[in-house]
Amino acid sequence: MELIINLAINGISTGMLIFLIAAGLTLIFGLMDVLNFAHGGIFAWGAYAGVWFFSLTQSFLLSILAAVVTGLLIGLVTEYLIIRPVYGNHIQQILITLGFMLVLSEMLKVVFGPDIKAAETPSYLSGSWTIGDVTIIKYRAFIIAVGFLVFIAMQLILKHSKIGLIVRAGVMDREMIQALGVNIRKVFVGVFMVGSALAALGGALFAPSSGVVYAEMGMEFGIFAFIVVIIGGMGSIPGSLIAALLVGISNVFMAYYLPILSMAVTMLIMFVVLIFKPQGLFSTSGVSNK
């Protein structure tokens, strides 16, 4: 029983990290119809930025902040240089963002060196609580809490603020929102930056829990995030959360009991969802669903 609870907590925290990457990805996809395969690269950059800043300052909070700022800046530059020239063309988007993903990975090796880097957990988040027979690793609980807070904050913003309304409306009908006087490109730059910052935050949170960072982590998690966006429904934040938890939990369990099949199960979930709900679990596009 303890094992199952531990695996579940482990799965939920992994799911929350995937959610942080998928949240930006799904909005980028839903709002601008842009396929961004470089998104995972920003996750990796966030992780490296966090580790580097922690080694400099010994402050976990500052290292998280540094990762978020790194994400915002890479997001700004990526949108301008990489995404803007390929609006409306999926094939070009796939090619250029996959290429840029490799550039981001290689740049990590150039800047920080090719070796795997060790990442530390801050002392106040190390260790665990023991409740009866169950041991809860503090840091995993911390990740779950942060992921959940990010989800709540995003929901509140999307539901209640004017900018949130504009983003939701833009996901449903990009033309109409412009015909009402909204410069959707400007909104998109903001969404792209925030989405990148969330991915970077995910990376910075991931590093202490895995203990290491490496350049290829962006590609690994990026693929998971893409699958999660497809399962959850493009443009849906709740869909991404549910799908990320599903993928995170199933992956951790499979990795424990049947490691050889852990990726296969993720793919299986995606296929099953697509067969029964081709638009994903929570499709937000009001038109296609009705």
């Binding site: 409306a169 449903m172 412009q178 959707i184 937000t284 009001g286 009705k290």
Partner: peptide
């Protein structure tokens, strides 16, 4: 661009009405 034209004072009611269904 469309958003500038809208801001000049033109309101558009498209053929498909352009209602945001989930809002």
């Amino acid at each position: 661009p469309p958003y500038e034209i809208a801001k000049k004072g033109i309101g558009y009611v498209p053929e498909d009405q352009g209602i945001f269904y989930d809002l």
